[in-house]
Nucleic acid binder design. Structure first.
Length: 673
RNA sequence: GCCGGCGUAGCUCAGUGGAAGAGCGAGGGUCUCAUAAUCCCUAGGCCGUGGGUUCGAUUCCCCCCGCCGGCACCA
């Protein structure tokens, strides 16, 4: 089609059992930023995102909503699409795993793998969690380690993929392509995983109805990863990928929790089918609501809409890319979000644009002044202006020793790139303060200098508009128009950015505040109340189930720090009972944890409690405590904990004080209400 | 348990074998073109603890403490 170089990148294909939260948003916004940047660099770019719509969870949710699966997923897919639109995301391909062309691609890929001898029929027997729709590694009779619900022993016939055959080829590939898995820490994890040996993988199911049929092998349908991962290929031609020229992908951007599927399974499938491998898998970190405090409940997810409504989509995009070092985990809080908005966007970029454009309006009748570049006298007079120019020009140099704006974008160091663009903004602010154009304006003999100063400020703003556009598409476009630029900023060739391209005499567009300042408490209050409102409302199709909150490629948002009001029915979900401690011992290698056995009336439970620093094990025996008995079991330091002992958390260190019943005798097993 | 990472100013983090940094917040001052914005100054932090290598370590090595991640079918 065009002679442009091609660039293909993907977001995860999101599972449609719930609605998007801030973590999904993060993945997608990063991709959109890269897409816009590559486009400005002159690439023919395709960004694929989409929805993963098969599986038992969808079956169940659709049933609950009382609609056919196809209808359910259609509505969900529409929701996801709409959200991406609201965030300014330019998805070139929106692939749904229920698309016909995707089914064809999956079936074709399977056929290739099978013909090449990497698929064989077999049986799998294991403990199966029907809620998570997954085999889990526990003994018969044990509960699911993830959701805590009972598992079933299931034997089914299914097709296996010979993953074991790819240990060596994969390791060779990793060795030959050191940048294949990013960042480095994830690469090492994957490496040690593969070095530890690979087991074959079952890739079809007969226990699922809602899936892509395996041709001629009904009732087999394809199981999640063989289905979902292939969507990346389906989106750009499937079997005819050579015609589009977009395969292999340049980068698959994923959340760190699904790195293995992308860095091990997917390349192995492709190798088995004799297809080219993607060039890079980039795993980003999670956004945590409160990094110090891990949340146990997944109920409180932060959604992007309230933020977009209160602060605008650019504010959210900017925050996601600026606040967190890409690749690492980051913290999310409304507090820091509004802080960033006010100090960087409103007071920084917005205010600079406002003061510059207002002065050009006032002193030059709304036309870009002539900087008189040929005037040598003015030139020497304006050394500070030369400084601004230098800073701006350095931004465009792709080198870790230069201005870092372009270099940072190029290397996915988004926070660095933005940070450096903001050094230009504050340099211009300082430049204006020093040169006082408002004072120059009162002296007709200094007209030339005034022109020069305001030209430089406007030209620097133009640089900012171009450089920041991939992150702030909406507001930089406004700025672009305010600067009187007739071109489409998104098409502007970033590599051709040069100082002095701003044409004198250009009439400015209508000026308006880019980022109106907002009172912090009020903004937080509005976002939180909208969020709470949204949590109460069922989704357009059905309420998302908490167990599915960790969708593919999502980043986890743990619970909010501040407690919300809950209804009595929510409280009733928590089953607390009086328990008596029977035994207590320290856990080797864990100095905070005690392993307890607790009689809760109906049974004796093993429970771990983080109280070892303050309670002697021997003195606890016989003590009556409050126990949450219906908490999902989990392993702490390798020791299973089936319940939770209630304690007050006192002081800044959170010293635990056990809740108890000192005054009255209570019966073991009595429920707390 | 095994493997890996991290621990630097109130907060979020950057950084280097040779005189400790940025942004934000906070305190003081300033201008008035601007979104009560800007700009300037100030923060004196045992660079987790202890030891080692070195002329010299926050930066290299070891131990310890604390936190986090990975250790397979988790959409």
């Amino acid at each position: 089609m065009t002679g442009k170089p091609k660039y293909y990148l993907t977001t995860p294909i999101y599972y449609t059992n719930g609605l998007p939260h801030i973590g999904h948003t993060y993945s997608t916004v990063v991709c959109d930023t890269i897409r816009r940047y590559k486009r400005m660099q002159g690439y023919d770019v395709v960004l694929t995102t989409g929805t993963d719509e098969h599986g038992v969870n969808v079956e169940r949710s659709a049933k609950k909503a009382g609609v056919p699966e196809s209808e359910f997923v259609a509505k969900m897919a529409a929701e996801w699409r709409a959200l991406w639109d609201e965030l300014g995301v330019q998805g070139d391909e929106f692939i749904r795993t229920t698309d016909l062309k995707h089914a064809h691609t999956v079936q074709w890929l399977f056929k290739q793998c099978r013909e090449n001898g990497f698929v064989y029929p077999g049986h799998y027997t294991g403990q199966y969690c029907i809620y998570d729709n997954a085999y889990v590694d526990v003994k018969p009779g044990e509960n699911c380690p993830d959701c805590g619900r009972p598992t079933e022993t299931v034997t089914e016939a299914n097709y296996f993929f010979k993953l074991s055959a790819f240990q060596k080829p994969l390791l060779d590939w990793y060795a030959k392509h050191p940048a294949f898995i990013q960042p480095e820490a994830r690469r090492n994890e994957v490496l040690s995983f593969v070095e530890g040996g690979l087991r074959d993988l079952s890739i079809t199911r007969t226990t699922i109805r809602w899936g892509i049929p395996v041709p001629g092998e009904e009732p087999h349908v394809f199981y999640v990863w063989f289905d979902a991962l292939t969507a990346y290929l389906s989106a750009v031609g499937g079997p005819q990928y050579e015609k589009t020229g977009f395969w292999p992908a340049d980068v698959h951007l994923v959340g760190k929790e699904i790195i293995r599927f992308h860095a091990v399974y997917w390349p192995a499938f492709l190798m088995a089918a004799g297809l080219p491998l993607p060039k890079q898998i980039w795993a980003h970190g999670w956004l945590l609501m409160d990094s110090t405090k891990m949340s146990k409940s997944l109920g409180n997810v932060v959604r992007p809409r309230p933020i977009v409504h209160v602060l605008g989509m650019d504010a959210l995009r900017y925050y996601l890319l600026r606040e967190t070092v890409f690749g690492q985990d980051g913290n999310f809080s409304y507090e820091s979000l509004v802080q960033r908005y006010n100090s960087d966007l409103a007071n920084g970029l917005g205010n600079l644009a406002s003061r510059t454009l207002t002065m050009i309006e006032k002193y030059f009748d709304g036309k870009i002044p002539d900087p008189l570049f040929t005037d040598r006298l003015s030139d020497s007079e304006d050394q500070a202006g030369q400084g601004i120019r230098q800073i701006a020009e350095l931004m465009t140099v792709s080198s870790p020793n230069a201005g870092l704006a372009v270099w940072g974008m190029e290397n996915f160091h988004f926070s660095r790139a933005l940070e450096s663009i903001w050094t230009l903004i504050s340099a211009v602010d300082a430049y204006l303060t020093t040169n006082k154009p408002w004072a120059l304006a009162e002296d007709d003999t200094r007209r030339g200098r005034l022109s020069r100063v305001l030209y430089n400020a406007a030209e620097a703003l133009r640089f900012v508009a171009v450089l920041a556009h991939p992150v702030l598409p909406e507001s930089t476009t406004k700025l672009w128009k305010q600067l009187g630029q007739p071109t489409t900023l998104g098409d502007w060739p970033i590599g051709e950015l040069r100082w002095g391209q701003l044409t004198p005499g250009t009439p400015l567009g209508k000026s308006q505040a880019l980022f109106p300042r907002i009172e912090k408490a009020e903004a937080i209050e509005r976002m939180e109340s909208m969020e709470n409102e949204a949590q109460k409302q069922p989704s357009p199709v059905s309420a998302p189930t908490p167990a599915s909150a960790l969708a593919a490629g999502s980043t986890t948002a743990a619970s909010q720090g501040a407690a919300e009001k809950i209804g009595i029915e929510d409280f009733a979900k928590i089953e607390m009972r009086v328990g008596q401690i029977k035994t207590a011992e320290r856990i080797v290698g864990a100095d905070k944890l005690l392993k307890l056995t607790v009689d809760i009336g109906t049974e004796i439970r093993q429970i771990c409690a983080g109280i070892a620093q303050y309670y002697e094990p021997e003195k606890l025996i016989g003590r009556k405590v409050a126990v949450v008995v219906n908490l999902a079991p989990r392993k702490l330091r390798g020791v299973e904990s089936n319940g939770m002992i209630i304690a007050a958390s006192v002081g800044p260190e959170g010293r635990p004080v056990l809740a108890g019943f000192p005054d009255e005798d209570v019966e073991i097993g009595a429920r707390l209400k």
